[in-house]
Structure formats: structure tokens, C-alpha cells
Design a protein around this nucleic acid. Structure first.
Length: 804
DNA sequence: AGCACGCCGACT
DNA sequence: GTCGGCGTGCTC
């Protein structure tokens, strides 16, 4: 008898390995690796979902084996590539294999569990218990819905076998089904029938005409009704007569029905052409080369992607293109769909769960061979991949923030090497990690240094808000920016204003000199904690009182920094009463499709000013925008994170690229209290190269990536002392096991100490060569699992992007 | 995760 | 003497 190795849906460390089950005879010829199954688990008769990891007949388990109870799929949902990858990914991210598997699948395939109470023998059962059941003697059973007295009786009856508890496993993976019709008659038979029907049965005659003309074609019932004007009742009677066979057929939900035009390939300039040549040469030769495509904003990276994809498709291969969620704008979708049409599957958060499932199935069935999507699209079940593209590779959203904490770039590299295909990392401002690898020759660097059609980069002016406050008392809009706004309004050109909300109110800054309080130990800005009324360093735990005057210049104008978009909108409206202002932030884009609507309105010229947060910095391409203003460049500069300079530089560079994308020249204003900071100065000059070198220097001196690896370990509990104590315990273990080259920061409270009523404490370790690190983290993972039951969670985040 | 088992105090 | 509280350990 065959044995199946199953990964069960129980996310714990103890169950993080395949369990052996017997394959019942009736499943023997159906069961395949990668299918979802239902299996019994534990001694309470519980049933759970699992994934078939392997089928063979050599088991090592010497206890009594149980049988697989049933199948959830008729075809595998994971191929061997993705199964192997789930194992690698679980080890890499210190998470459970089942969690990795579930993140690879559409969310509707996640099992739902329902306990049910079944009535076996209704004689001698009290009326109050009988009343619980419906006609079919089965009822959904949630223990906490019933009072103790009832539960007591249920337990008693269960002992007597009059009642039993059963477990139902189901999933929400419902395909949309429609009625389809297929004629049962040959043309001759139909002609024969035609002589028999009464002359006034006009609908039956229509049906027979249809059969005569479209003899063996299947057709949707809906189509028969609309296109051939045959009422449903007539179809039904034709089915009764045996003329038609009627059956249910799966149909894909198509969110883009009829919305897409065409998009023809553009002529490439020399830089673009040579980029496409180098990339497609790697596709041709089956080389898993990683390319870093460094192109200034407006250099036409997207066209390079599309034509490289085209080359892969011409070889009969498939293509995977990843973009940050935020740049999956309608403009982008139209461009790709317009180029490759129905071969494209789109996977993004704007789709309903059912639509996502349909797009996923189109890929799994081989009906789509180009996939475009955000982070999780990296798991699309494509075969024979010829190219993987990651646009805006520096974007933090490529890293998943909760378990499994994978970085899309790592998964992309794994898949590229599996498929022997190139991986293209594209950005105007590559992450330091990627750029350093390109410099070392690990990645191939391709540069696109010129904007297409030789447009000039916009002029960027930095405005010192310290002066502005001193002179006019104006904190949000400098007089220079305001006059530029008025000027564009007169010329009927459009304006984009960005309010940088990152780090809103979490640190204090002096409005006279721009001074921000830093930790004496870590050179990281201190975070304001209102609960304890102190300034804390969440790297090392240093703490000091909130200052009431500036330590640098003595001014009393020191306070929390930050302001909301709504407030700014009101203020702006009072300054330019006639301007039409559109606001775009989390509040105005919460509803599905509202993001799209706002951009469309702005693109149609229904507004003069688009005021928004970070989400307006990327991917927008509006030719009439000639002025871009960043109202507060500093808020992301002084976040307690060693990447804050890099993020600020990226953001400013990206948003500047929104200005002057057509023939009109663009102008950018950056308002800041730190006009001399290198991130701002170099963003003004759009000088990535110099920024890269300068920032690498800083990282080298402070022992941060890419020179050092980092890992974040955190503990959370409703009880603050427990979380802290746990981290001190872990710190002790780490100190004992790691070399003295490893640098430990903390334990210290996280900068958002309290989140969802839980307290967080963390340690950050910086290390270079630490062969003990992996076993050590695995030890922590195994050792502290049991604490999870008491609500104390220990998390490990390898290579964290978010240090807060 | 969720279930049973087992050991302890409180009760008819 | 028994009921039910929660801590502990296991699930093919």
C-alpha cells in the first residue's frame, strides 16, 4: 500500500515536518504530489487540511498510521518547484513550511474548519437539546455559544453515543459556474424534428435552426438567450425533449472585460536597445544572470521590460513581472494588457478573492503566460519561465512584514536559478545592497543614464524652512513655492504636492535650527514615547526626558513634528481659494477603485493640484504636471532607522521625476529644515552615484548592511515585563553562543512599544561571519514555541527592513 | 491550533 | 469522595 507524506495545516515547530498517512485504495490512482487533502489529526477525531509532499511506500514512523480522509483537489495546486521552494523558504525565513505553502496559494484555498454536532439517536433526549438541531440532525457547533448546563448534557449524550462531534473541512475556492448548452441532435435529426413541430412554435423552430447551423458547438445559455433571442423556458423544454444537453461550466471572472485598448512596441533608443539585447541573450542561453537595470526616472525602463518579455515569449517561454502594489496603476495595467492581451494574468490587491483565484487558475492551467503582480505574484505557478522582472527593486513593500517574512528578491533569485533564466532588478535608485553586488560583479549592471527623447531632468530647488519660519512664520508653504503654485495655476498647468507622512509625530525637532535629538550611543534619532513621557532609543534602550528647549540653540520652538493632509488641504485652499485640489491619502483611497478614480480625475484635468502622501511619488505620468512640491522632506530623514537617509533620497528622487515628463520643463521644490543634509543635497542634484558612495561610507563606519548582516528578534506579550524578561533571557543565550564580533543592540522597547494591546521588545544583531547564527536562531525558535500558548510570541526577522 | 490527560483545590 | 480548574504534551 502506498504511503503519503503530508504537510499538515498546524503551524507549530513540532509539526513542521511531513506526517505519514495511508492512501486508501479508492484514492490510489487519483492522489498526486501537491494536492490538498483532508486528514485526521490527533485523538479527538479532528480533521484538518494538508498538502501531499510525497508519495512512496517507505515510512519511518513506527506508530499506527491513519488513512487520508479525502481530496480537496482534482489536480495538484503546487508543482514540484513550488513544493521544494516552500521548504527552502521556511528555513530561510525561520517560519513553518505550511505557512509558506499557504502564502503561495490564493487565499480562497485556505481551509475553513467547522465543528459539527450530529444526532445519532433521538430517543430519550431532552427537548432543549433536540431543539438545537435542524431537520437533518446536524448543526454547526461552537462551544462558547452554549451555556454550561447544555454543554454538560451534550457531553453526557456523547458518552452514550447518542451524539457525535464531526469536523468539516472546506475551502472557499468556488469557481463561478454558468449553464452551457450542447446540442444532442445531428443536423439530419434536427431537420427531421423540424417537420414535426407546429408552425406556430416559433421558439422551438429557432432552436432547431440553431442546431442545424451550429450542430456540435457548446454555447453559454446566457448567450443563446441574448444573441439568438430564445427565452429560457424554451431552452428548458428543449432540454426536456432531449435536444439539448445542459451542464454547468466554469467561467473566469474577468475584471478587465472590454477596458483594454492596444499598445504597440515603441522605438528604443541605443541604451534601451542594448539593455534588451543583453537581457534576452541571457534568456536565449538559459543563464540565471541577475541584472541591475539602473535607469533615471523617465529613462523608459518599462519599455525595456516589455520588449524583453516579448523576446522570452517568442522562445515559447513565460514571463513574470513584479511591481510594487502602489505602481499597479491603471496606466500600467493598460500598458501591459494592451501589449500582450489575454495572455496576461494580473494579480493585485484591487481584485476580489474570486477574481484572484480565477487569475491564478488561468496561470495554473497554462492559459496565461505573462504574470504581472505585486509581492505575492512571485509565487505564480508558471512553468518554463524565461524572464523575471522586479521593477522598483528597492521598494520596502517587497518584503513581507509578517511571517513568513520573505523578501521577494530572494524568492525571485531562487526561481531564476531553478528556471535558468535572467532576473532583472530595475530602479532609478537601487537599494545599496543590490548596487553593492553590482559593483562587486555579482550582478550585471546596465545603466540607462538618459531620459527618453533627451528630456532634461527637472530643476530642483531646496528651500530652507528655518529661514522661512524666521521671516514669515509660515511653516507649511514657503512664499517661493506659493508663488510658483500661483504661476502654474495661471498657466493652467498642473501641480503635485507631497506631504511626507512617514514618521508622523514620532520625533521632536527644533523649528529654529532643525536640530533633532539623537541617541548618544547609536547615532539614531530618539523616539517620542508619550506613555512614559520620555525619549527612547529603540536600538539600545537609552532613555531621557522630553526636552523643553533645544539643546543646540536653546530655542523653545521645539516640538513634535508632523501634520495631516486634511489640515494642509484646508490651509492650501485658503491660500489659493480658486484652485481645485484633489487629496489622495489613506482616507480618500480606502474604497476599492478610488485610487484609480482620483488619478483619472487628475489626468482628465478636473483638478489643478494633487495633494497626497508617498503614494503619489511613483509611476504617475501626467504630461501637464510642471511643478512638484515636497512640503516636508525631513519627516522621513530623522526616523530611528539606519535606512532613513536612503529612503528619503529615494522618495525625493522618485517624486521629482513626476515633473516635466513631456515637452514642458519641470520644476521641483523641496522644503526642509535640514537643507544641508547629504540625502537632500544629492536628491536635488539627482546624483545617485555620489549618494551611493557617501551612504556606503556611512554604512561601513557604522557596521550596517551591506557590510554587515542584521537580524531582529522580538517578543510580544500583553504584560510588558514578560516581553522584556523574555528578551533579556534570549540576549543571554545569544551572548553565550555568538562570537564577540557580533554586535547586539538591545534588548529595548520597540519604537511602537504598544501595538494592539501588546508590548514589544526587541534585539537587533549585526554580524559578519557567524556560522553559529543559524543553529542559534533555530534553537530559539524551537525553545520558545511553547511560550506561544501563553500568549508570549517570539519572532525572528532575518534581514529586517523595518527596524521599528 | 486543539484536544486529552493529569494533577490540584473546592464542593455536594 | 467527585467536579472542573488549568498546566503539559502530543498529534502520522
Amino acid at each position: 500500500m502506498n504511503l503519503a507524506k503530508v504537510i499538515v495545516d498546524v503551524p507549530t515547530m513540532q509539526t513542521n515536518e511531513p506526517y505519514t498517512y495511508l492512501v486508501p485504495d479508492e484514492l490510489n490512482d487519483k492522489l498526486q504530489k501537491g494536492m490538498r487533502v483532508i486528514v485526521p489529526f490527533g485523538n479527538g477525531g479532528r480533521k484538518i487540511q494538508g498538502i501531499v509532499w510525497d508519495i512512496d511506500n517507505n515510512g519511518t514512523f513506527d506508530g499506527e498510521l491513519k488513512e487520508i480522509s479525502g481530496l480537496l483537489d482534482l489536480d495538484p495546486v503546487l508543482n514540484t518547484e513550488l513544493l521544494d521552494m516552500s521548504k527552502w523558504m521556511a528555513e530561510k525565513t525561520y517560519s513553518f513550511q505550511i505557512s509558506c505553502i499557504l502564502t503561495m496559494l490564493p487565499s480562497v484555498m485556505r481551509a475553513k474548519y467547522q465543528k459539527q454536532l450530529v444526532l445519532n439517536d433521538s430517543s430519550e433526549i431532552d427537548d432543549d437539546i433536540l431543539a438545537i438541531f435542524g431537520d437533518d440532525n446536524v448543526v454547526d457547533f461552537d462551544v462558547d455559544e452554549y451555556p454550561a448546563s447544555v454543554l454538560k448534557k451534550i457531553i453526557q449524550y456523547r458518552k452514550e453515543n447518542k451524539l457525535s462531534v464531526e469536523y468539516k473541512v472546506s475551502d472557499g475556492a468556488k469557481a463561478k459556474k454558468i449553464y452551457a448548452i450542447k446540442p444532442n441532435l445531428t443536423t439530419e435529426q434536427a431537420k427531421e424534428e423540424l417537420t414535426k413541430v407546429r408552425k406556430n412554435s416559433k421558439n422551438l423552430i429557432k432552436i432547431l435552426d440553431f442546431i442545424i447551423n451550429h450542430n456540435d458547438k457548446e454555447i453559454a445559455q446566457r448567450k443563446l438567450v441574448h444573441d439568438f433571442d430564445i427565452p429560457e423556458a424554451a431552452i428548458k423544454s428543449a432540454v426536456d425533449k432531449g435536444w439539448f444537453a445542459r451542464f454547468l461550466q466554469e467561467e473566469y471572472r474577468n475584471p478587465y472585460q472590454g477596458k483594454i485598448g492596444t499598445n504597440k512596441p515603441l522605438k528604443l533608443n541605443d541604451d534601451q536597445q542594448s539593455a534588451v539585447d543583453r537581457i534576452s541573450a541571457a534568456t536565449n542561453r538559459n543563464q540565471d544572470t541577475v541584472f541591475l537595470l539602473e535607469g533615471v526616472t523617465g529613462s523608459g525602463k518599462t519599455e525595456v521590460y516589455l520588449q524583453s518579455i516579448q523576446k522570452a515569449l517568442e522562445l515559447g517561454k513565460t514571463a513574470l513581472m513584479l511591481v510594487p502594489e502602489i505602481s499597479l496603476t491603471p496606466q500600467m495595467v493598460k500598458r501591459v494588457k494592451g501589449r500582450f492581451g489575454n495572455r496576461v494574468a494580473m494579480l493585485h490587491s484591487g481584485l476580489s478573492n474570486g477574481e484572484k483565484y480565477d487569475e491564478w487558475r488561468r496561470v495554473n492551467n497554462g492559459e496565461a503566460d505573462v504574470v504581472v503582480g505585486a509581492r505575492s505574484a512571485i509565487f505564480a505557478p508558471l512553468d518554463n519561465i524565461g524572464i523575471i522582472i522586479m521593477d522598483e527593486e528597492h521598494e520596502a513593500s517587497y518584503k513581507q512584514d509578517d511571517s513568513p517574512r520573505y523578501h521577494t528578491r530572494d524568492v525571485a533569485k531562487w526561481r531564476a536559478s531553478f528556471h535558468n533564466c535572467p532576473l532583472v532588478l530595475g530602479s532609478a535608485t537601487p537599494s545599496l545592497e543590490s548596487r553593492a553586488r553590482a559593483t562587486k560583479g555579482v550582478y550585471q549592471l546596465i545603466k540607462l543614464p538618459h531620459r527618453i527623447n533627451n528630456q532634461s531632468l527637472p530643476e530642483v530647488r531646496v528651500i530652507d524652512m528655518k529661514e522661512e519660519v524666521k521671516n514669515s512664520g509660515q511653516e507649511d508653504f514657503s512664499s517661493e513655492l506659493l508663488s510658483a503654485i500661483n504661476n502654474r495655476l495661471q498657466k493652467h498647468e498642473q501641480i503635485v504636492l507631497m506631504l511626507n507622512r512617514r514618521g508622523y509625530s514620532s520625533f521632536v525637532m527644533c523649528r529654529s535650527c532643525g536640530f533633532v535629538l539623537h541617541c548618544p550611543n547609536c547615532d539614531i534619532s530618539l523616539t517620542l514615547h508619550m506613555d512614559s513621557r520620555t525619549m527612547k532609543c529603540h536600538y539600545c534602550g537609552h532613555e531621557e526626558p522630553i526636552p523643553n528647549k533645544c539643546k543646540n540653540c536653546g530655542s523653545k520652538k521645539i516640538r513634535y513634528y508632523g501634520t495631516g493632509t486634511q489640515k494642509v488641504q484646508e490651509k492650501l485652499q485658503s491660500l489659493v481659494p480658486n484652485a481645485r485640489i484633489l487629496r489622495m491619502d489613506v482616507d480618500t483611497t480606502r474604497r476599492k477603485g478610488s485610487h484609480e478614480r482620483i488619478l483619472q480625475k487628475f489626468g482628465n484635468g478636473e483638478a489643478d493640484i494633487l495633494l497626497g502622501t508617498q503614494m503619489i511619488a511613483k509611476g504617475l505620468d501626467f504630461p501637464n504636471v510642471t511643478l512638484v512640491g515636497v512640503l516636508n522632506a525631513d519627516t522621513s530623514l530623522d526616523l530611528p532607522d539606519f535606512r532613513s537617509s536612503e529612503r528619503t533620497f529615494n522618495l525625493l528622487t522618485q517624486v521629482s521625476g513626476r515633473a516635466g515628463r513631456a515637452e514642458k520643463k519641470g520644476l521641483v521644490y523641496i522644503q526642509t529644515f535640514n537643507p544641508d543634509h547629504y540625502a537632500i543635497r544629492l536628491a536635488q542634484r539627482q546624483d545617485y552615484e555620489l549618494f551611493y558612495r557617501k551612504e556606503m561610507n556611512v554604512r561601513h563606519q557604522t557596521n550596517y548592511p551591506p557590510y554587515y548582516f542584521t537580524v531582529k528578534i522580538s517578543a510580544s506579550d500583553v504584560n510588558e515585563a514578560k516581553a522584556a524578561a523574555k528578551m533579556y533571557e534570549i540576549a543571554k543565550i545569544l551572548k553565550a553562543k555568538l562570537s564577540d564580533q557580533a554586535i547586539m543592540l538591545g534588548p529595548s522597547p520597540s519604537s511602537i512599544l504598544k501595538l494592539k494591546n501588546k508590548y514589544y521588545y526587541q534585539i537587533i544583531i549585526k554580524y559578519k561571519n557567524e556560522p553559529n547564527m543559524k543553529p542559534c536562531l533555530e534553537y530559539i525558535l524551537n525553545h520558545y514555541q511553547k511560550d506561544a500558548q501563553k500568549g508570549l510570541y517570539v519572532n525572528i526577522d532575518p534581514d529586517p527592513l523595518n527596524f521599528m
